[in-house]
Amino acid sequence: MNMKDFLHHLFLPHISNNYRAKLLHRKSILVVIAVLFFAGFSFSAIRTSLPSVLGTFSDISSEQLLLLTNQKRQENALPPLSLNQQLSNAASGKANDMFAQNYWAHNSPDGKTPWVFIKGAGYNYIYAGENLARGFTNTQDVINAWMASPEHRKNMLSANYQNVGYAVETGKLNGEDTVLVVEMLGSTALAAAPAPTNQLASKTQQEIITATSTPVPTSSPNAAEATPTSTPISIVQKVVPPTSLGNKAGGTVLDANKKTNFKPLINSATFSSDVSKGVVALFIFALILDMIVIERRKVIRLVGHNMDHILFLSLIMLLITLIVRGAIV
């Protein structure tokens, strides 16, 4: 059997396959199911034993985040932010804390707000804010996601901020290997906090507080807010990502979930999603061909409705896209 006959046998209803594409035979489907389960377990084992070969990584960098953020600010006639080491330390501490305590929110389960990390890092803010992202593979997608969210966008385009710090950490959160991005924004002087020049920087994202007061978390698990006090000073709050590890602001936290940031040979998330989409596309293709050929030849068979399976597999294709997509808070 040459390649052409083999493909014909595999994808087209024909006398050689009893008028049902071979790929759609019960035995073929069973083989594919077994291979997928085996591959899932194997990949998981390889991720653990050989993380340099198969693992989670991203091409996100602090430099690119800063560059793209400042581009957006420039487009909106706002001054650029400067990278601040203390805010970067605070961001790293927050990311590590999320991994260590296994949470994905602005406030930790024990009530720690983002401001605790910022103050702990020695940054005496007047205004401060936080954006979080997880599961993204490149910087542009993170920036696009934040810009598409009104609240995150407000933080990025607030005229109240002078400085920014970033942390990009890889680790296990909620049982999932992921990359966390923490953006901490702030300013240290009232002079740096002019009135917002555009409507994005509204009060809904910022609270006026005294410089010495401690922000109090609100009821929303994903947004920390500060309690207004007598002195007009600021704070901002925003996104939260998961993390674990040492809090540079307040000492180290044992973090079994945090992993070293290095680039494995294969990005498991991207590779698995590509393979999954390929398998789904192959079956949809075979089902459509089968449906068309049988309809034209008016062959009578006792099988399920191909259209049902096509809809089900199309849903899976959509879900794969949804699952691989990153998240922000």
Binding site: R26, F37, S268, A269, S272
Partner: peptide, 29 residues
Amino acid sequence: SSKIVVEYILIGTLGVAIMFFLLKGGFGI
């Protein structure tokens, strides 16, 4: 017919296998 029942079970299981491969192999759940 029993053949049809088996077919739907297989396609449903195929979907679960694809998701398992994606989430276990890709994200280590």
